[in-house]
Computed example of a mutant assay.
Amino acid sequence: MSSITFAQNKWSVELRPGINFPTEDFVDSNVETGFGFEVAGSYRFMDHLGAYAGWGYNTFKIENSDLDFDLTGYIFGLEFIHPIGTSEKLSYLLRGGGIYNHIEIENTDGDIVEDSGHGLGWELGVGLNYELGANWNLRPQFGYRELSRDVEFGESTSNVDVNYFVFAVGVAKIF
């Protein structure tokens, strides 16, 4: 972003759809590539550093099963956006923070079979911020997320680790 934009605009809202690549299986079942989206707001409290918070939904299909699982919940953390060299339009973006999500296991009818309850996890991300003009930015990003929750299956409880890489392309409006 140009120095004029940084000096005047501190708030942004971003819609970020993405593709999720799981790094582990779900209990004893293979997990397929998933998808999701997030909506987040951020406030820049220093020249290049800001805080973000939002809500997200991500879903994964369990291979050879009539079940899938969804992660829904909140995201929060810090983001650092800094121009690359002398560019006024292109910046790099670094993010780090927490997620407060729960795992919902659903059947093909969309009925929730099990729910883990919310718990804390974490996320890291890196990407680019390209100023499109009129305070609109394009933000391709690559990240990693981890969440561990206990889920009850009938009378037994299993610890489920949901770890995945995400590639997302956000569109942000700066205010």
Rank of each mutant, 00 (worst) to 15 (best):
A40W: 00
D109M: 01
T33K: 11
W122F: 15
G97W: 05
L94C: 06
M1W: 03
N30R: 10
E131A: 11
F76G: 10
A134L: 11
K173W: 00
R149Q: 11
F37A: 15
G96Y: 04
G117K: 11
K173C: 02
L138G: 00
E88L: 11
V169I: 15
D66P: 09
L90D: 11
Y74F: 13
A51Q: 05
F45H: 07
Y164T: 09
T33Y: 08
V126I: 13
V126Y: 04
W55M: 03
L67S: 06
P17G: 14
F6Y: 14
S29K: 13
S42G: 08
G154N: 06
A7W: 03
A40Y: 04
F26V: 11
I81G: 03
L49N: 10
I99G: 00
N135S: 12
G121Y: 06
E152Y: 10
L90T: 11
N129I: 04
L94N: 02
L90W: 07
A168S: 13
E131Y: 09
Y92A: 01
G121K: 08
D161W: 02
K10G: 05
A168W: 03
E79H: 12
G125H: 00
E32I: 08
N135H: 10
G96F: 03
A134N: 15
K89E: 14
T5N: 13
A7V: 03
S42V: 02
G121N: 10
N163T: 14
E131L: 09
G127K: 01
T5E: 13
G96L: 08
L128R: 12
V160I: 12
E32D: 14
